[in-house]
Lab assay of single mutants.
Amino acid sequence: MLDDRARMEAAKKEKVEQILAEFQLQEEDLKKVMRRMQKEMDRGLRLETHEEASVKMLPTYVRSTPEGSEVGDFLSLDLGGTNFRVMLVKVGEGEEGQWSVKTKHQMYSIPEDAMTGTAEMLFDYISECISDFLDKHQMKHKKLPLGFTFSFPVRHEDIDKGILLNWTKGFKASGAEGNNVVGLLRDAIKRRGDFEMDVVAMVNDTVATMISCYYEDHQCEVGMIVGTGCNACYMEEMQNVELVEGDEGRMCVNTEWGAFGDSGELDEFLLEYDRLVDESSANPGQQLYEKLIGGKYMGELVRLVLLRLVDENLLFHGEASEQLRTRGAFETRFVSQVESDTGDRKQIYNILSTLGLRPSTTDCDIVRRACESVSTRAAHMCSAGLAGVINRMRESRSEDVMRITVGVDGSVYKLHPSFKERFHASVRRLTPSCEITFIESEEGSGRGAALVSAVACKKACMLGQ
């Protein structure tokens, strides 16, 4: 009897593995994704193909990295998701002549009506938060230079001027797309009239992360975010950046690689679950690469896999709870928690219980395998993109072996128990001629924006502006 049951459990697990095998990517698959990513990057950089390229390769006008001589107080704003952060950054000489960066910050959550109302409502709310922060720190009387981390696709015309191309991540505030974001912020500050600010720089969160990590390690020339969304930036040779005049030196390019796949480059790798996630998203047909990796989508992918296993009578005796059938019910943090389970399955059992399920031991094991399959594919897909960037940098610099540091931020990278190990191992397999160091950014977005502002202020002083 026991043997029969054991055989049935083994057969069930084997069927589960057959279904989950769809998520496995072979090294040849990853090399294919990497080569296609490089081709799209090239198209994004070139003037004649930029418009139709899915990977936009947006110039950021960040050319210099901090040298350690900029000092002063800077205000930093960070808008990239449902939370908005205001930070005071003091850049100065530390002990023994070292450079020191001290920060104080406060988080504000953005109400739904500000995210989806008008641009005026959104930026009025942001300036209200700045006003509140300055009151708390008794700094209303000071006109501070301000660095703005704005983590949406922007076409820069200068370091302090950028046109919002399109909202992502659930934002829909009308009247912002096609307009200068810094102008919208300046107008809102003017409307309030109770404080003055000098907006000197606007950067993407990947750029802010790279600059913040450069402060720790001067070989950091790539910034990457794996959180709600997924994106990367890197220092490109100016001669390859056709959208900006000049051939000397390097400029940081914001790849906006989340949109890779929007022209069909990933079609052969998309599964039924991916198509369902895409169809029910706020932007169907867009940001397809990001939807395979980002935390906004990972939990939902797992939920759809679990429903398939229920329908195949391989999980929960073929019956799903009402909660499990509800879109968004299986949160991405559950994926991390399930994979963090120590082996007694308590954590998995508790999560499934909150979803109205009474799982068996085998159910718990199957749910864990589903989570591992989805998150491992995410790590491997992400590795193909980064390997594409790094191999490109090595080739354009004609280096036999390139040493490089990548600064990384984002909740999936930082909080998932195995993502970074799987990701690092896969990147290294795909970049055999590179020695890569990964560092995690601390308060990256805010500190990085302030350091970019410090560079901009120093330049302005040198130019006598």
Rank of each mutant, 00 (worst) to 15 (best):
M8D: 15
R422N: 15
M210C: 05
Q18V: 08
P59A: 08
Y413S: 01
T206S: 08
A449M: 09
F23R: 00
D409I: 04
L77R: 01
P66L: 09
V71H: 03
D217E: 07
K291A: 00
F23M: 06
R191P: 01
A320H: 14
L430N: 03
P145Q: 02
K161Q: 06
E27K: 13
D29P: 01
S433D: 13
E157Q: 14
T362H: 03
K296P: 05
D365M: 05
H317I: 15
R325P: 03
K458F: 05
W167P: 07
D187G: 04
W99V: 11
D311T: 08
L75V: 08
I390D: 00
Y273W: 13
R392Y: 03
V16I: 11
E300L: 00
I293Q: 05
T376M: 06
P145W: 10
G246D: 04
M381C: 11
L47G: 15
F334T: 11
E372T: 07
H416R: 06
G68T: 15
G318S: 09
E27A: 15
F423P: 00
T206D: 04
S418D: 12
C220T: 06
C382I: 10
G162Y: 10
I163Y: 14
L164P: 15
G299M: 00
L88E: 11
E67T: 15
T149M: 12
S127Y: 01
A379F: 04
R377L: 00
V389F: 00
F171C: 13
K346G: 09
A176D: 06
E442Y: 07
D29R: 04
G264F: 03
E339P: 02
F123M: 12
D158Y: 09
E96I: 05
G285K: 10
M210S: 01
F438T: 00
D194E: 07
T82M: 10
F419R: 04
C371H: 01
I126R: 00
D3T: 02
R394F: 07
S131F: 06
S64D: 14
L47N: 10
R250F: 09
R345K: 12
V302T: 07
E312Y: 07
L288P: 08
V310K: 04
E272L: 08
P111G: 09
K172N: 14
D267C: 05
K291M: 06
E265N: 10
N204T: 06
A232V: 11
S353F: 10
R155V: 11
S100D: 12
L355S: 01
Q239M: 13
F419Y: 10
S433H: 11
A119G: 10
G356R: 06
D194W: 07
Q286W: 07
V226T: 02
C364A: 09
K56T: 03
E221W: 02
E265W: 04
V305G: 01
Q287M: 14
V200L: 09
E157A: 10
T103S: 07
S321N: 09
L315A: 09
L314V: 14
E27R: 02
P417A: 05
E421F: 10
A378T: 03
S396I: 12
K102M: 06
K13E: 13
L352C: 14
H50M: 11
V374W: 02
K414H: 04
F438A: 01
T376Y: 03
G446F: 14
F23K: 01
G294A: 14
S340V: 08
V310C: 04
G117C: 01
F269W: 15
V305W: 00
V302W: 00
T82Y: 05
L271N: 08
N254T: 05
L144N: 00
V302C: 11
S453P: 11
L451K: 04
M139P: 05
Y214L: 11
L75F: 03
R358I: 07
V408L: 08
Q465E: 06
V244Q: 01
V182W: 09
S336V: 11
C220L: 01
A188K: 02
E157N: 15
A450I: 05
H380R: 11
F316T: 05
M37D: 00
A21H: 15
R403C: 14
K140H: 05
C382K: 01
E248W: 04
G193F: 05
E272N: 08
P153C: 04
T255M: 15
F195D: 12
V222L: 03
I293E: 00
H141S: 09
H141D: 14
S151P: 14
A188L: 02
Y214I: 10
R345A: 14
Q286L: 13
G81Q: 04
V207S: 04
E300W: 00
R369L: 11
F316M: 09
C252G: 03
R327I: 12
T206A: 09
E372G: 10
E14H: 02
L314S: 06
L355Y: 05
D158C: 11
Q465T: 05
L309C: 05
S76R: 05
E17C: 06
R191Q: 04
T82K: 07
E242D: 14
R369A: 10
N350G: 06
M139D: 04
S336I: 08
L20N: 00
K414Y: 00
A10G: 15
K346Y: 07
E395K: 15
T82V: 10
V62P: 02
K102Y: 09
V207N: 10
V335Y: 02
D363I: 00
F150H: 02
K12V: 14
T118P: 07
R7T: 15
S131C: 13
E242V: 01
V101N: 03
F150P: 07
A53Q: 01
G249S: 02
R368F: 08
S174D: 12
N350W: 06
H105T: 14
I110L: 12
C371D: 02
S76N: 11
Q347T: 15
C129E: 12
A114G: 09
A320T: 10
F260V: 02
G343Q: 10
G246Y: 03
R36A: 11
K90M: 06
L75A: 04
E40H: 02
T437V: 14
T206R: 02
H317S: 12
A384I: 09
L324W: 00
T65D: 02
H105D: 14
A21N: 00
G147L: 11
E440N: 03
S64W: 13
K142E: 12
Y289W: 13
L134Y: 04
P145S: 11
R155D: 15
K32P: 01
Y125D: 02
V408N: 03
S340T: 13
L122F: 12
E265V: 08
T49A: 04
D29F: 07
K142L: 10
F423K: 02
I293C: 11
A384R: 00
S131D: 11
Q138E: 07
E312P: 01
G410I: 02
V89W: 03
